[in-house]
């Protein structure tokens, strides 16, 4: 981890902290560090203690859920200008997803403990950070719901109907009473005797 002098500049340029008051920015800088992740490496893992969050400066991060015997499910990708991780704001501060760098990722990381302490001590900072996180959480929630809708799926009703009809035809006793069925039955009897 490196802490270059221009961290304040980097922080201010990032869309997430756009327009932040210099006094609050300086408080943030104290908890921030520059980080770099090679493609394929993990930013964080589900279940870990949420002691960091990241502002992505470049590259793409996949938010994943690990599953046995299959490749992980990517639920979302996060890119330049966006933020990864908000479990650090919600007790018990545990990460709920994996985050993997899909490309080379450069990010600004924030020490959660450091920041939480400062936010407690300085409500103006606490309010400002939450005010920036909340819209993102709301957006992610509504995006996840849309994603769940599976909007581009082929329409189902037509096929469901067909299945139902087939099932009904199989189950129906009506065919037994049809002339064909009786003929079949008679033939079977003939064959047996």
């Amino acid at each position: 981890m490196v802490k270059p002098d221009n961290l304040a500049g980097v922080l201010q340029e990032h869309p997430f902290f756009q327009g932040i008051a210099p006094s609050l920015r300086d408080l943030l800088v104290g908890c921030a560090a520059n980080e770099r992740f090679e493609a394929g490496s993990m930013l964080f893992r589900q279940g870990d203690s949420a002691d960091k969050f990241y502002l992505i400066r470049s590259g793409t991060v996949a938010i994943e859920i690990d599953q046995p015997a299959r490749p992980p499910i990517v639920v979302e990708t996060i890119t330049e200008g966006e933020v990864a991780g908000w479990s650090w704001l919600v007790p018990p501060y545990r990460l709920t997803f994996d985050a993997r760098a899909l490309t080379l990722v450069r990010a600004l990381s924030f020490d959660a403990q450091c920041l939480r302490r400062k936010m407690e001590a300085e409500p103006a900072l606490g309010y400002d950070v939450l005010r920036r996180f909340l819209p993102i959480m709301a957006h992610r929630l509504s995006a996840s719901r849309l994603q769940m809708l599976d909007l581009y799926a082929p329409p189902k009703p037509a096929k469901v109907k067909k299945e139902k009809a087939e099932k009904a035809a199989k189950k129906s006793k009506g065919t037994n009473r049809s002339p064909d069925a009786r003929l079949k039955k008679a033939k079977k009897k003939d064959a047996k005797s």
Partner: peptide, 12 residues
Amino acid sequence: DRATGRWGGNVG
């Protein structure tokens, strides 16, 4: 909406 196979692009 759903990544499959070796998809390395955006998901969401």
